[in-house]
Design a protein around this nucleic acid. Structure first.
Lengths: 148, 148
DNA sequence: CCTATTATCTCGTTGAGCGAGATACACGCT
DNA sequence: AGCGTGTATCTCGCTCAACGAGATAATAGG
């Protein structure tokens, strides 16, 4: 018989799959591709962290080469989700800024899921929250470290 | 200031991203595409559950149409990861069976991460495990339900 | 300034996945 | 048995995301 911990491992995998499908639904409903959604999420993360995002850094974050990055930003710009802004200091750079409406669109779609997650977490005490937190940190670090 | 629960929400998202990247690394190291890896995982899940997997069901599970499914199975078969077996009862069906070596390959790659996760979980008591389990179930169900 | 380096874009190509339709088998129905 | 309807897979032609190679433009160092 398998270790009882395996149930949680499979649950975690199922969550990852569901979250992926959730993004994919958002993508296809808005005429976008999974990569475009990942790009918008990356851009919003950077914005929340108060960092500027250049075309190159965006492409690197998504594992695209320069040609693919240009095509991606073209696509997002054509759809009105981002703007290209030439770098102030270094005029070779192209800063990619998310449009407010894209942010609102994302919040409208992902908001309910986030709210529900927060609501679930409010049902736990400090020790239980610490367990969830440290398990997720552990898996994230293990997945990030394995194979470089 | 943001709710403290948001840290865990972002952690969960980070885990999903890392697991995705982990699969992607496995894919590119073995000359495969993300879809091929998802297909193999689906096939192994079915095998563990003792179910037969037809070409059609596999394609449906991955959201591919019939043409894409044929191409996918062609690709996997050419690489020696699966075999096509004509259905016994219904000769229109094509059962897709994973090759033992593909199973071994997957276990060699994902095994350490799974082992590490189980090891992490062994550090918690029953109440903490229950918290992790119910949180993951809750998020999985919420992500699955949102937008159909 | 002249050269090396860095950031982005252009061009031509590959290949995953799609839509439409062909093919092959299964299961009634009479 | 013979025929039509439904179902499973495959073939063909196409689109478009992403790649490799190389062009273009701006910065940084000697």
């Amino acid at each position: 018989m398998p270790a009882p911990e395996m149930e949680i491992v499979h649950l975690l995998r199922a969550v990852a799959v569901e979250l992926g499908l959730h993004s994919a639904r958002f993508a296809s409903r808005n005429g976008m591709h999974p990569t475009d959604v990942r790009a918008l999420i990356t851009l919003m993360d950077a914005r929340r962290a108060g960092e500027e995002m250049t075309a190159g850094r965006l492409g690197a974050a998504l594992g695209l080469n320069s040609a693919g990055t240009t095509a991606l930003v073209d696509r997002l710009e054509r759809a009105g989700h981002v703007r290209r802004v030439r770098g102030e200091g270094d005029r070779r750079k192209v800063l990619v800024e998310v449009d407010e409406r894209a942010v609102a669109l994302g919040q409208a779609y992902f908001g309910p899921l986030i709210d529900r997650s927060v609501e679930l977490l409010r049902g736990y005490d400090e020790r239980e929250l610490a367990a969830v937190r440290s398990f997720l940190r552990g898996v994230r670090d293990a997945a990030g470290r394995e194979g470089e």
